[in-house]
Amino acid sequence: MNSQIFQAKVPMYRQNEFAPAFMLKHMTKDFNLAQNEAAKRGLNFPLLAQVTQSYNQANSEAGLSELDMAVIYQSLAKHLSK
């Protein structure tokens, strides 16, 4: 998890501010495209399916889709605490 992208987003997590560099809605679209392509080919990638589901859920939450993809953290934290 300690990638260059993660390190670049650490200030967002710490400050709880997610100014868009790459919006959640665009990352969600990309995961959906990957999931659909895998399904067309009869391939099953459980991790991809779970990530796609998590991003779709976050994307549907009020106000998150236009924020940076790092905002997935808020959605996951919210749903994991239930």
Rank of each mutant, 00 (worst) to 15 (best):
M12K: 10
S3P: 06
A77R: 13
S81A: 15
R41W: 07
L47Y: 15
L80H: 05
L47G: 01
A38M: 03
S54T: 03
Y13K: 02
L76T: 13
K9A: 08
K82R: 14
Q53I: 06
S75F: 06
F18R: 00
Q50T: 12
L33T: 11
L43E: 12
A49S: 13
G63Q: 02
T28F: 10
V51T: 11
K29S: 11
N16R: 15
S75Q: 04
L24N: 05
T52L: 02
A58K: 03
A34E: 05
M23P: 15
M27K: 10
M23I: 00
K25F: 11
Q57T: 06
R14S: 10
G63R: 01
S3N: 04
P46F: 12
H26T: 12
Y73L: 12
F18L: 02
G63C: 03
A58N: 03
H79F: 07
D30Y: 05
K78W: 00
E37N: 04
Q4H: 08
L47N: 03
G42S: 04
Q35H: 14
M23Y: 15
F45M: 12
K40Y: 02
N56H: 01
E17T: 12
Y73K: 14
V51A: 09
I72D: 07
E61D: 05
R41K: 15
G63E: 01
S81V: 11
V71M: 03
E61Y: 03
G42A: 07
I72N: 02
M1H: 15
A49I: 09
Q7C: 08
Q15C: 08
L67T: 06
S81T: 11
F22Y: 11
Q50I: 14
Q7S: 14
R14E: 15
Y55W: 10
M27T: 10
A38E: 01
K29T: 09
A21L: 14
D30T: 10
A62V: 08
Q4E: 09
P11L: 09
F18E: 02
V51P: 00
E66Y: 02
N44R: 12
A70L: 07
A39L: 11
Q53E: 13
N56T: 04
L43T: 09
K29A: 08
Q7A: 13
K25E: 15
L43A: 14
A21H: 14
F31V: 06
R41C: 09
A58T: 01
V10P: 05
A77P: 01
D68T: 02
L64I: 04
K78H: 12
N59R: 01
G42R: 03
L64K: 01
P46M: 05
Y73S: 11
M27S: 07
Q15W: 08
Q4Y: 05
K40W: 01
G42I: 05
Q57W: 13
R41G: 08
Q15D: 15
A70K: 01
P11K: 05
S3G: 11
S65I: 02
S81C: 05
A39G: 03
